[in-house]
Structures are given as C-alpha cells and as structure tokens.
Amino acid sequence: MAPTLEAGNRRRVEPDPAAPTQGRPVPPAPQRKRKKDLFPYLLIAPATIMELLIHIIPMILGVWIAFIALTQLSIGNWVKAKFIGFENFVAGLSPSSPIGTQFYGALGRTLLFTVIVVALAWALGMFAAVLLSSSFRGRGLLRTLFLVPYALPSYVGTIAWAFMFNQRDGVINRFLVDDLGLLDHRPFWLLGSNAFWVMVIVTVWQFWPFAFLMLLAALQNIPGEVYEAAALDGASLWKQFTNITLPMIKQANSVLLLMLSLWIFNQFNVPYVLFGPASPPEATLISPLIYQQSFSNWNFGVGGAMSVLLLVVLLIASAFYIRLVMPKGKGPNA
C-alpha cells in the first residue's frame, strides 16, 4: 500500500497538466494553471503525513517485527534485534502448537462474534429507525435517549454491564434468581461460555445506536410520497419496507454494515474492560489475544506473526470494502 502512495506523491512533483485524469474528461475550465495544480496537494499533505507516521509506517514495521527476535531485553534497542526468519510464525501460527490452536480458535470466534453482533445491532437500529421515522409526541426525546449508549464512553458502558453481571450480587442475578426465581443458582456470567454471550450483549448495546443513527438519516431522505403511492396501491407495511425502504437505502446500508463489521471484528475495548488483560479462553477475540501475547506474555514476535496474518486477512477484506465504498474511477462520494 505504501509504495502506491509514494508513487502518487512522486508523481505530483511534475504534474502534467495536459494528461487527462484517469480517462475522465478534463473540465474545460481555466483552472488548469500550474500554480493551482499544487494547491490540492498542499491540502492533503498534512493528512498524508499523519497517516504515514501513525498508520502506514508502523504497519510496515509491524511486519518486520514478526521476523526478528524481540524480547523484553532487546526492546530498548530493537533496531539491533536479530533476524530469525519464520521462527515466530512457526511458534505462533502452526495449527498443531498450543498457541496456534488459540489463534485459529480466536479467529473463528471473532468471525462468529462479528456476525452475531452486527446482525443484532443492525436489526435493533433498523427497528428503532422505522419506529421513529414518522413524527409523534416524544419522538425527539426518544431519539436522544437511544443515542446515549453510543455517546457514552465505551468503558463506562462496559463497566456498568460488568457490575450488572457480577456473579454474587449483580443486578442480573438479583433479577433472575431473587426477583423472578427463574434460576436456583447464581451463574458466573463472566466466566466460560457465558462470557462470550455477555460480551455480545454489551457490544450490541453500545453499537446499535450507531446503526440507528445512520439508518434514521437514510430514512429521512426517502420522500414520503413514495409510501403514499404504495399505500394507495394496497401494499402492506412489510411490502413497503422490503420493496421501498430497503432498496432506497441500499448504499447507506452497505456502508453501515461494513463499518459495523470492522469495528466489531477489531473490538478490543469491551473485552478489555469486561475481563481485564486476559479474557476467558471461551471469549478471547483476536485483538485481545495479540495484546495478551505481546504485553502480558512479552512474546512480541508471536504477537507480530499473528498480526501479519491478520493483516493479510484484512487486506483481502479491504479490497472488497473499497470496491463497495468507492465505485471504480470515482472519488469517495462523487
């Protein structure tokens, strides 16, 4: 990725005013003067520098880390750490090693987690957006209320849920065991396979308002006459939803689903605040696993090797992402 960007930058030194930009017709305006041609580059320069410094260069360096012997001792002078080839990959990623088993387990679990959370968050967000798309008394108040979990700092929401799922005396056990009498024992919610589902609940709670916000904005762009016409033709509410609403918000929807999927797949905050630096094995997602390897076990190399594989997976996914967000030959929103 970075090489392409560099090439883009190098090209800018000698802009060729005569060359048509990527097959598009050059606007017939007098804005083709040389001085003005530098202006857009000046405008994107600060953002480019920051992206290079904080994202691109570290990611390239991250690949290098996977190939060197980086330990707590050598980290102070990491430039001189020894090159060890694929040793880290063998230790961390071979499916027969215990760490490798953990890694592939976490990868599969993270995928499952993403599908479940995105589906639930989208469904709740859509439901709320449809219910709030027509005006009635109290609508503004409810809209504000529904956005609170999204506006709240993520760690605050998670701390609240961690407190609620407390085994001995949390509100969930109080409600299920003491108030309703549904259970005759007090389950450990934050251990074992329960932990996974608690993590799902907490994450859905935090992210569905974002889906709601985006979908509400999209629904407001659909002219009301469309529904009136459909209703005159006798289309049921469900028909109106599937035949009018969904197709008309398709673009917004695909962007939303992708953003949600990425955030959920890369989720770190919720498990970290819920379980601390080490999640229960049944609830370990990929980001916390790499964190655990690097900063709890000081196994930087293995963490690095896992990162590289994850990078490859995400690069493939990003190819699809970009095709969706940016149709070929166009700017992001053109």
Binding site: I56, Y291, F300, S318
Partner: peptide, 15 residues
C-alpha cells in the same frame, strides 16, 4: 489508502 487504514485494528500498529 486513507479509507483502508480504517480497516486495521489498533493492535496491529500499537507496538
């Protein structure tokens, strides 16, 4: 490039 950096989890470039 800018859009695709959003793809990657922080854990990839933290260390």
């Amino acid at each position: 490039v800018v859009l695709s950096t959003q793809m990657f989890p922080g854990i990839l470039f933290l260390l």
